[in-house]
Amino acid sequence: MDWFLQQLINGLALGAIYALIALGYTMVYGVLRFINFAHSDVLMLGAFAAYYLAPLVAPLLGATTIPSAIAVIVLSAAICAVIGMTIEYLAYRPLRKRPRLTVLITAIGVSLFIEYTGQHEKVFGAATKSFPTLLPKTEIILGGLRCSSNDLVVVGLTAVLLVAMWFIVQRTKIGMAMRAVSFNEQAASLMGVNANAIISFTFAIGSALAAIGGIFYSMRAPGIEPLMGVQPGLRAFIAAVLGGIGNLPGAALGGLVLGLLETFFGGMPGLSNYRDAIAFALLILILLFRPAGLLGKVQTEKV
């Protein structure tokens, strides 16, 4: 029972990170109906933004303090929000009326451009860098169970951001405009909605979430490097599909389910080397038996 509860705690923390990244995927897909494969590289840029900002903020607010961590996270999220809007404006907006395959190939090209530009020695370099300690870390021990204070922060912040995203989409005017653009961009424009501004806002929010997810992922990882976003990005994409891409609660559910499965199978003798295979096998099964995801709705295409 102790092993089960310990893996449950670890899985919830990892799943919360996947859910946070998957929220960015699902928001962009919900409005534009395409997968932004550069999302995982915005995650990497968020981690590097925090890496360079932490030493600058520490003399002002103190090292490893809560105000310093909040400042680093907010500034990194803002930087990535601007990067996300820039990517949308330069790469995706000119192709908005083109076939989806064209946009998909462009997204992969943007992803590769960011990754290999980051590996240049005058940018980030290819060497792995040790991520700074942002929050004071304490171990909470209850019986035979151990839990890190950072894991509690990740789970709590993910829950808060999920509620905030749901409130923005469902209870605000800009959320109503996002849903209108998602349903019919042309009709929304005729009703006075600035579709370009709404899409830019969506990319900004999604990129900010990716940055926060990248920071929390880096706090658990041994180091950061320009290709670090590939694996968590793929897993978050699987989580979004698993829960129902375009569905905010579905992205959170998919992230938690995937994190729990990876942790439980990773903790079993003889199965720890197959955690990646398990994740992709789960994706195949979902696409075969429930293509819309756990919380997604099947949509009939009319000819």
Results as ranks from 00 to 15, higher is better:
114 I>V: 14
123 V>A: 02
106 T>E: 02
128 T>M: 10
104 L>D: 04
117 T>K: 03
97 K>G: 15
102 T>Q: 10
103 V>S: 12
115 E>D: 08
105 I>Q: 00
123 V>G: 01
104 L>I: 13
102 T>E: 12
120 H>A: 12
116 Y>C: 00
115 E>V: 14
94 P>H: 06
112 L>G: 06
104 L>H: 09
126 A>K: 08
121 E>L: 03
93 R>F: 08
112 L>V: 12
107 A>L: 06
96 R>K: 07
124 F>A: 05
123 V>Y: 03
107 A>V: 09
100 R>I: 15
94 P>S: 09
109 G>V: 11
113 F>I: 13
112 L>D: 06
95 L>F: 08
106 T>Y: 02
110 V>K: 05
126 A>Q: 05
111 S>F: 11
108 I>M: 14
112 L>I: 13
97 K>Y: 11
103 V>Y: 00
122 K>H: 14
119 Q>V: 05
113 F>E: 04
115 E>P: 06
115 E>I: 11
122 K>W: 14
96 R>G: 03
93 R>K: 10
127 A>C: 07
110 V>P: 02
101 L>T: 12
119 Q>G: 04
97 K>H: 12
114 I>S: 04
128 T>L: 10
124 F>E: 02
127 A>T: 09
101 L>N: 03
123 V>T: 01
95 L>Q: 00
112 L>K: 02
101 L>W: 04
102 T>R: 06
101 L>D: 10
114 I>W: 02
96 R>A: 04
117 T>W: 13
122 K>R: 13
117 T>P: 04
117 T>D: 06
117 T>E: 07
113 F>A: 15
127 A>P: 02
120 H>E: 12
115 E>W: 06
95 L>E: 02
96 R>Q: 04
95 L>K: 01
99 P>V: 14
127 A>I: 11
113 F>Q: 06
115 E>Q: 14
100 R>E: 13
108 I>C: 05
125 G>F: 06
111 S>V: 08
109 G>D: 05
121 E>D: 14
116 Y>G: 01
109 G>C: 06
108 I>Y: 11
101 L>Q: 05
108 I>D: 03
111 S>K: 09
95 L>M: 06
114 I>N: 00
126 A>S: 11
110 V>T: 03
112 L>Q: 09
122 K>P: 01
126 A>W: 02
126 A>T: 04
124 F>N: 03
113 F>V: 14
110 V>I: 14
93 R>D: 07
115 E>S: 07
112 L>S: 10
100 R>P: 05
108 I>A: 07
121 E>I: 09
107 A>F: 06
109 G>F: 09
126 A>V: 05
118 G>W: 00
125 G>P: 00
127 A>G: 03
126 A>P: 01
95 L>G: 02
118 G>Q: 00
122 K>F: 14
110 V>W: 00
97 K>T: 14
126 A>R: 07
102 T>V: 15
112 L>T: 09
97 K>F: 12
120 H>P: 00
112 L>N: 09
117 T>N: 05
97 K>E: 13
99 P>H: 10
97 K>R: 14
110 V>E: 03
114 I>P: 00
125 G>Y: 04
105 I>W: 09
128 T>V: 10
105 I>G: 01
125 G>N: 02
112 L>E: 13
101 L>F: 11
107 A>R: 01
100 R>N: 10
119 Q>Y: 06
122 K>Q: 12
127 A>D: 15
111 S>A: 15
